[in-house]
């Protein structure tokens, strides 16, 4: 089956005042097949939010796509005009932002903010859009949609607000949902609820999703395939159970070890504390000539400083960008 979303060799630069451009995304290719969840793992500043905004054509003025293509259902999205892109946004590809407290307009009622999305894409009466908004609110698990419909954002809890944001994103039954850290701003028990809700809706509606997160737990439960991003490039890709169980790239391995997890009974704390990856993320305006992870890497080879490694496929369905695997 052809992929729903195909990104090929994407490169996005930001202009910054000090000389060279900031390379936020480079040589990035990925596929999201219909009805499938792809997880994108990476830390702040690795370019994952830039990627999502580029897909929707919402990059800030200072950013420029310098190379590559983004196809949705075979149609090139890069270079589309505002009116065409508006028809795609929310209707075919929608997005769930990280912080629902910021994603909702504080001075407007919830119902009108959900109905508005329907109204933007359907030639329906106000009445029908309102009914659709109510049924959408019920669909994301509100037992009393009418009360929520008439509420203001500040009257809801964080988890309730994120449900509303999900209702907005699904209101026009898009084929693809982009999710930017959908649980990061929530309490841990609420995180579990929202993870469960997203999983259930994805299965029920047959959604394709691209979930960006540094919550490995969320990715492990939602995504079948996982991509790991570092300094604007994909460094590893593969089946989620295998990437989490046997990470190949030194960065993926370091990241997984840094993750807090439930302690085993009787373990002393010294064994629980992970060895953090030394150093910090590189300055994207001054990337090294070689592999961007080389300065922090424990497994570095002499070749690492000369040029960035190429992508190789060391095993079935796995991709990695590292000299250890012949890059």
């Amino acid at each position: 089956m052809p992929a729903l979303l195909e990104v090929r060799d994407l490169a996005v630069h930001y202009a910054d005042g000090h000389g060279g451009p900031v390379v936020a995304v480079d040589e990035l290719s990925l596929d999201v097949p219909p009805g499938e969840v792809v997880g994108l793992l990476g830390e702040s500043g690795c370019g994952k939010s830039t990627l999502l905004l580029a897909i929707l054509g919402l990059l800030p003025r200072s950013a420029r796509v310098v190379n590559g293509s983004i196809r949705f259902r075979g149609r090139e999205l890069l270079g589309l005009g505002e009116p065409e892109l508006r028809g795609v946004r929310g209707a075919e590809v929608s997005i769930i932002f990280q912080d629902p407290a910021l994603a909702l307009n504080p001075v407007r009622r919830i119902g009108s903010q959900v109905a508005e999305v329907v109204q933007a894409h359907r030639r329906w009466s106000g009445r029908r859009c309102r009914d659709e908004a109510l049924s959408m609110l019920a669909e994301v698990g509100f037992p009393d949609p009418v009360r929520i419909h008439d509420s203001y954002p500040h009257e809801l809890s964080g988890g309730q607000r994120q449900r509303v944001v999900i209702a907005q994103a699904l209101a026009c039954r898009p084929a693809l949902v982009l999710a930017d850290e959908p649980t990061a701003s929530l309490d841990s028990t609420t995180q579990a609820e929202v993870r469960g809700l997203l999983g259930a809706l994805q299965r029920r509606l047959g959604l394709a999703m691209l979930v960006v997160s540094h919550d490995l737990g969320a990715l492990a439960t939602l995504a079948r395939r996982v991509l790991v991003m570092y300094a604007g490039r994909l460094v590893e890709a593969g089946d989620s159970a295998r990437v989490f169980g046997d990470p190949l790239h030194p960065y993926s391995r370091g990241l997984l070890q840094a993750l807090p997890r439930a302690p085993e009974p009787g373990s002393s704390r010294e064994r629980r504390v992970p060895s953090p990856i030394p150093g910090s993320s590189p300055d994207l305006a001054r990337l090294p000539a070689g592999c961007a992870f080389e300065p922090r890497c424990a497994d570095r080879l002499p070749a690492c400083v000369d040029r960035p490694p190429r992508e190789t496929r060391p095993a079935d369905g796995r991709q990695v960008r590292c000299f250890k695997y012949g890059g």
Partner: peptide, 28 residues
């Protein structure tokens, strides 16, 4: 520049609604 305006644009809300229903009421 507020995140909810970016969210509205991401939902495909037309520019005049972004201005009159989102930006102006929030700036009021």
């Amino acid at each position: 520049d507020a995140p909810f305006v970016r969210a509205a644009r991401a939902h495909g809300i037309p520019p005049r609604h972004v201005m009159f229903r989102h930006a102006l009421p929030a700036a009021a």
